[in-house]
Amino acid sequence: MNSNYSFTIYTTVSILPNTWDAVASENKFLQSDYLSVLEESAPTNMECFYIGVFEDKNLIGVALAQYLNLNKLESFGERDKCFKTAIRNFVFKNFASHVLFMGNNMITGQNGYVFSKKMDFETISKINLDCANEITNYFKKQSITIHIVTFKDFYPDGASELKKYCFNPFYEFNSQPNMVLELQNDWKTNEDYIGALTKKYRDQYKRAHKKIEGIEVKELQLDEIEKLEDRIYELYHFVAKHAPFNTFFLAKNHFTTFKKQLKEQFVIVGYFLNEKLVGFHTILLNGTVLETYFLGYDEQVQKEKMLYLNMLYNMTHYAIQNQFKKIIFGRTALEIKSSIGAEPITMSGFLYHKNKWINKFIDKIFRNLEPEMTWQQRHPFK
């Protein structure tokens, strides 16, 4: 690594260098207002670190790291009630409960770091590893042993480059792909999008649209979010708890804090039945990219009204209307997301276990613990 490079690890947003947001201008998830959301309302089992990379004395890169204490977790996910899940939970509690993520474990996509100048992958891998070692030592001084260090998420070309350098000995894993919908230039209205669908998927759209009749859909303002905070959290928590796998639960004030900090760049849309909130979805406006965030719903209403599918259509409609270039739908529910046109993008992560004997067999252990995923990709466009 160039000896002119150095880094500083910060534990609070208020002391970040004043050029931080200029360096992070390409990615909302690394800007100080979003980092303030994490600081004020991170999951209770998470601690965040903000990394500044300097060339001489000039800030040229910013990065995020997150420590997770899985011992504080109420559940790792309750959807798959089986022996394998019980084994997985035991292993995580005893051999993988202290995890350091170099990157953002709360969202999907390459949001771990950004540089204001072109950097070679050897330097990037070295900086990542040096920062991970420094944070690991920080916890060691507090008598906390980090079990697993994970570097997430990388697109295939970046992952293959990083493997040539410091990441080479680490276990590379591909969990569920990131579902991304590239919006066509000729989609100026929602009708253009519907017109691009084959008959089968136009019929799906019409059926979903008809099912949601009787539901009032509206964007929520800050005062409404504050008033509905408990109900929003209840709906979010139901969905999160029934996910196949979880490493955190959001704090109750997370969505309110997010709206306060990011204002019009963070949108919460509420779904009401007989004036009662029965679902919501959230989106973040990240330059030309629409990032989907967390959502929640009442299971009974979701089944009757095809609520989740309608949320996906509504996000797509919003993106077209506001001329975004693509929508990041994230992981999970791959098949239904592909039915509205999202394509799977493979993303890699790298990890190693600090215990050298466990690390030796990490590939076998990881493959056996990862929730199984079978799905059929849909092709809805003509």
Rank of each mutant, 00 (worst) to 15 (best):
F7P: 10
Y10C: 07
S14M: 15
I15L: 15
N18S: 15
W20K: 06
D21L: 11
E26A: 09
K28T: 13
K28M: 13
S32Y: 12
L35M: 14
E40V: 15
E40G: 15
A42H: 12
T44V: 10
E47A: 08
Y50S: 12
V53S: 04
E55S: 08
D56P: 00
K57W: 04
K57S: 14
N58E: 14
V62L: 07
Y67E: 07
L68D: 01
L68W: 02
L70A: 01
N71R: 04
E74M: 07
G77Q: 10
R79V: 05
K81S: 07
I87L: 14
N89D: 15
V91T: 12
F92E: 11
K93S: 05
K93D: 05
A96W: 06
S97V: 02
S97W: 02
G103H: 08
I107T: 14
Q110S: 15
V114H: 03
K118E: 11
D120N: 14
F121D: 05
E122P: 00
I127T: 04
I127L: 09
N128W: 05
C131T: 14
I135C: 00
T136I: 09
T136A: 01
K140A: 04
K140I: 06
K141Y: 03
K141M: 08
I146N: 00
D153T: 06
F154S: 10
P156G: 11
D157H: 14
L162S: 02
Q176C: 04
Q176M: 14
V180M: 13
Q184D: 08
K188N: 11
T189P: 02
N190L: 13
E191Y: 02
D192R: 02
I194P: 02
G195D: 12
G195T: 09
L197F: 06
R202S: 05
Y205R: 02
K206S: 10
K211Y: 01
E213M: 05
I215F: 01
I215H: 03
E216H: 06
V217M: 12
E226R: 14
L228S: 02
E229T: 13
I232E: 03
I232A: 03
Y233W: 05
E234P: 00
L235R: 07
H237R: 13
A240G: 06
K241P: 00
A243N: 08
P244H: 09
F255D: 06
F258R: 09
F258L: 14
I268Y: 01
F272Y: 08
K276D: 11
V278D: 01
G279H: 00
G279F: 00
I283E: 09
L285H: 10
T288W: 04
L290F: 05
Y297S: 11
E304Q: 10
K305A: 05
M306Q: 08
Y308V: 10
N314V: 06
N314L: 11
T316E: 05
Y318P: 11
Q321C: 07
N322S: 10
F324K: 13
I336R: 01
A342Y: 03
P344T: 12
I345L: 15
M347K: 09
S348V: 10
S348Y: 13
F350Y: 11
N355V: 06
N355D: 13
N359R: 06
K364Y: 11
I365F: 06
F366K: 09
E370N: 08
E370A: 10
P371G: 06
E372F: 04
T374Q: 07
H379L: 12
F381C: 03
F381H: 04
